[in-house]
């Protein structure tokens, strides 16, 4: 195109133009960055300062002290809390991932009512976790619908015989809610990667004599890796910091770390509130650190494979 490039500031001397350009960039980024810096980064910094004993709000200022961390690490049940938090976060991520990969691969096919199915499977993605909690209580509680069906066909006699799925440290109820909500999410991400790929490389592999399992393992899986990494990282981080589901469906003390953090923060005793901030920092650092390692590992893996 032969039209001259329009630039409203082009008649200005170059140094000034560069400065104005930078100013414009900063100005346009400022509102969004301000919200995130003040609220999100500010929140984390304030939480960190409080966990070190800086809390003029409660007339406490023993900054800097590691006292709240020491108390936390030596308190009864803390390490069990850590275990449960990992357990409830990891298992649904893993199980959900396997279910999602298979669902995404199946979705590539043409089948009757596919259009309708694409509405249906996304529904859990669109509604709050609390709806999932509510459905789980209705179905899986000891006197719930499933227990009643089992009673009807004569498998159990009394609700006590139904396995405890909710309000128990096995965490089955919590994990059911996570998987139910998150499979559509991970499926969507993997499916959208698959859509961008096209069938060529898989067909080539098949032509060259690979069996379906080999095709999946050596051709499809590496190609959908970016989707898998993103999906699992987001889901794990969410589960690790999730509050309402373990709060309602968990087995009581020791609770997961986010629930313990809320309980401590909800305590009228200011010292406990500072302890809550120590828990918050532990959650952030552990979750952030793990995800960093996870993504670093993935980068190295891609590099070794010759892709960047």
């Amino acid at each position: 195109m032969e039209l001259p490039k329009a630039n409203p500031i082009k008649h200005l001397p170059q140094a000034r133009r560069r400065w104005l350009g930078r100013f414009r960039i900063a100005l346009m980024l400022a509102p969004a960055m301000a919200v995130l810096v003040v609220l999100y980064l500010g929140a984390l910094v304030l939480a960190f300062l409080q966990s070190l004993g800086y809390a003029p709000l409660y007339q406490i200022n023993t900054f800097p002290t590691l006292h709240y961390y020491q108390d936390l690490f030596s308190s009864t049940g803390f390490w069990q809390s850590v275990f449960y938090t990992f357990y409830y976060a990891l298992i649904p991520t893993f199980v959900g991932l396997i279910l999602s990969i298979y669902l995404a691969l199946t979705l590539r096919k043409r089948f009757a009512l596919k259009r309708l199915f694409q509405y249906v499977y996304k529904l859990p993605l669109m509604i709050p976790y609390l709806v999932g909690v509510s459905l789980t209580i209705l179905l899986f509680s000891n006197g719930g619908i499933i227990a009643r069906v089992l009673h009807l066909i004569g498998i159990i006699d009394n609700p006590v015989e139904f396995p405890r799925i909710l309000y128990d440290h096995s965490g089955l109820g919590i994990m059911i809610v996570y998987i139910w909500k998150q499979v559509p999410f991970m499926t969507l991400i993997i499916y959208s990667v698959l859509l961008g790929l096209g069938p060529e490389s898989e067909e080539a592999a098949t032509t060259l004599g690979a069996n379906p399992w080999q095709t999946f393992w050596y051709v499809t899986l590496p190609q959908i890796m970016p989707g898998i990494i993103t999906g699992t990282a987001i889901v794990f981080a969410f589960n690790f910091g999730s509050f309402e589901t373990p709060f309602i469906l968990g087995g009581g003390f020791p609770n997961t770390l986010p629930v313990e953090a809320w309980r401590a923060f909800d305590d009228p005793e200011p010292a406990r509130r500072l302890g809550a901030m120590a828990i918050v920092m532990v959650i952030s650092v552990v979750s952030g650190g793990l995800l960093y390692l996870y993504i670093a590992w993935y980068r190295r893996f891609e590099k070794r494979r010759g892709r960047v």
């Binding site: 984390l44 981080a237 969410f238």
Partner: peptide, 17 residues
């Protein structure tokens, strides 16, 4: 980063502010 920092940490921190 807001996607991968746990919600409970942001929630309590923002509440403090």
């Amino acid at each position: 980063t807001p996607l991968i920092v746990p919600e409970v940490a942001i929630g309590l921190g923002v509440l403090l502010i």
